[in-house]
Write a protein that binds this DNA or RNA. Sequence first.
DNA 1: CTTCTGACGAAAT
DNA 2: CATTTCGCCAGAA
Length: 133
Amino acid sequence: MQPPNSLKHAPVYERIYAIARQIPPGKVATYGQIAAMVGSCTARMVGYAMAALPYGSDVPWQRVINRQGKISLRAGGGGSRQRQLLEAEGVHFDPKTDSVDFNQVGWSGPDWEWLDYHGFQPAPVWGRRKDEK
DNA sequence: CTTCTGACGAAAT
DNA sequence: CATTTCGCCAGAA
């Protein structure tokens, strides 16, 4: 029997949100990074999940950014809001490139105990291009 | 029921 | 360096 909090069989979005909620203040994770931890998930799906979050969600959506260390915003704007929240947490943006330094604020993911307890397994291969190989 | 579409990212071209 | 292709969830119309 799985632990009561196991998310091994939970919907993908739920698994994504669970991981995102573990990102500590002052740190950031990328869409692809979260997808890899969730397993059977792509960076795009993480983006979809973030976009589907209701206003006032307990998920720290502002700590999820793209691989270039920049903020990905929805059509329309609101990006300044996200940057403001991150800077308030101590995340520094290079004024020249408008990107963050992953070596400085990059998140390494939950500790192995958390992952194991919630039924997450090491992410296998996730983006096989072409039909094989 | 079907169709549309939205915070991404890596490899190939 | 710029563009294209593909992965394939969830909710609205």
